[in-house]
């Protein structure tokens, strides 16, 4: 089922099921939804606590993943071990010379 097909199928039903709503919530993180899907989703979220929680979870996970990436990038205690540096130099020399 392609995204267009999903859009179509969803558009043909006025009310979203939670399963459809959760799919749209996930997709909305990756690209803008069509206007009709956006309206349907907003309405669904207005009346559905479970899907609102789901959306919040995904937001929390997104923020935490960024935080995790930054912590690793800035963690001075993580270093490339000397023996790996030596291995890299040997390997590159063997490929390049």
């Amino acid at each position: 089922m392609s995204r267009d097909e999903l859009d179509h199928r969803v558009t043909n039903n006025t009310m979203l099921t939670c399963k459809q709503a959760s799919q749209l919530i996930s997709q909305s993180l990756d690209h803008p939804l069509s206007l009709s899907n956006r309206i349907q989703l907003r309405f669904h979220l207005f009346i559905c606590d479970a899907c609102s929680r789901f959306r919040k979870q995904l937001k929390q996970i997104g923020i935490a993943l960024q935080r995790m990436r930054q912590l690793t990038e800035n963690d001075d205690s993580i270093t490339l071990p000397t023996k790996i540096k030596v291995r890299i130099i040997d390997w590159v020399a063997s490929k390049h010379l």
């Binding site: 995790m68 990436r69 930054q70 690793t72 990038e73 800035n74 963690d75 001075d76 993580i78 270093t79 490339l80 540096k85 890299i88 130099i89 590159v92 020399a93 390049h96 010379l97």
Partner: peptide
């Protein structure tokens, strides 16, 4: 190959953390 040594010493840890954060 002198460059290689310099790069690894100056930027190796940084590049490693950058890659580790993503992979």
């Amino acid at each position: 190959m002198q460059n290689l040594n310099d790069w690894l010493n100056a930027h190796g840890d940084y590049l490693y953390r950058f890659a580790l954060a993503r992979l």
